[in-house]
Design a protein around this nucleic acid. Structure first.
Lengths: 194, 194
DNA sequence: CCACGCATGTAATAGGTTACATGATTTA
DNA sequence: TAAATCATGTAACCTATTACATGCGTGG
């Protein structure tokens, strides 16, 4: 259900299924993702329900496109969702599970490598969002935009993603510092040194 | 697949499907969740694969329990997963979608209410994790534990969750401040005043 | 001509939630 | 005795990923 509302939101201007997939992959949509094989049937279903209209359109680069347009009914559905309670949704952060259970290996070198790799991954995501933020700020400088309009909301979302990632990265670094402070011991070696 | 490894990790000591479900609901497992109807078949499948053994055991509180124990083969599988790359997994944060598209409503009172509610929800989760952290630190004070053992890893995970939530809450507050600074205008009213 | 990007779809499978069926023990 | 907690499971459904099928247009 939520996917449909998100597609509805992304259709503030007409777009094809392919366009929407590109939007999902474009980084700022870090909070959700979907495959084409999920998007196409969803759009068809939404059209049957009267939330969208569509028409075929020639493409300059390839085969004919099917462009979807949101109807008034679709807008009403979206707005009802927006006015509702915040939908928390689900997280499946397998890396947290790996980190919790990694104590079992009792191998601080492993934990160190893991934390470094995790930090790198999180950092790469953060940099993506940060470049999107810079892009948004640049657009803001040229076009004035209304005081608390779309750009304000998009900026908040980006900052939330960035802040969350940076906070996690800081905890990785904290963990790495603690390991370093304990000195380089291999598994099997028993502790005792200050 | 990841669910199975997480169950394997949770089975560092023998447990029933019901026990594991309680663990998932107990907060510290904020990063993942599963229903009983998913857990029971998963355990059966893992037993068929030789990762677990199980035996029936009378319960003092109700019907007979089926208690699962991890085998050496199960431990090897888990450890291979732990030594592998960090698994990023998926997020489906519908509330970020709501916030992005909320610009369309052009109703700052709505955005304000939404941000307040979101902050409250995130705060409730953070408090849950913080109480788990206090509990862990209390246990740490009594039992010494090895330098970088299970408690170290669990603490890192808790801190990561807490830090991420607190960072998001700070962005909510930042958004609320910006809205307040713009003064209380209703939708339809056009901006302009400094 | 082949690889790549553009473009739309279906089929098979895996992962996850909600609803249902059953029954024991404890507590109000 | 009714409700709550403990306990295990299946069935139906929804959501999501991977694999497959098709075909246009551009550039090497």
């Amino acid at each position: 259900m939520d996917l449909e509302f998100i597609l509805l939101g992304m259709l503030h201007q007409p777009a094809s299924g392919y366009d929407l997939k590109c939007d999902f992959d474009a980084g700022p949509r870090y909070f959700w993702s979907a495959e084409l094989s999920q998007i196409y049937p969803a759009l068809q279903k939404m059209q049957r329900r009267g939330w969208l209209r569509s028409h075929r359109q020639a493409s300059p680069h390839g085969p004919e496109r099917r462009v979807y347009v949101r109807t008034a009914k679709g807008s009403r559905s979206l707005h009802a969702w927006l006015r509702g309670e915040p939908v928390i949704g689900t997280q499946r952060l397998a890396y947290i599970g790996q980190l919790i259970f990694m104590g079992e290996l009792a191998d601080r070198a492993r934990t160190r490598v893991f934390l470094k790799r995790l930090r790198d991954r999180l950092n790469a995501m953060a940099e993506l969002l940060e470049s999107a933020e810079r892009g948004l700020r640049a657009r803001e400088a040229t076009t004035p935009a209304q005081p608390l309009g779309h750009q304000f909301h998009e900026l908040l979302c980006l900052r939330m993603g960035i802040a969350s990632l940076r906070a996690k990265i800081a905890v990785c670094d904290e963990g790495l510092r603690l390991i370093r402070r304990q000195g380089p011991r291999r598994p099997g070696q028993r502790g005792g040194g200050k």
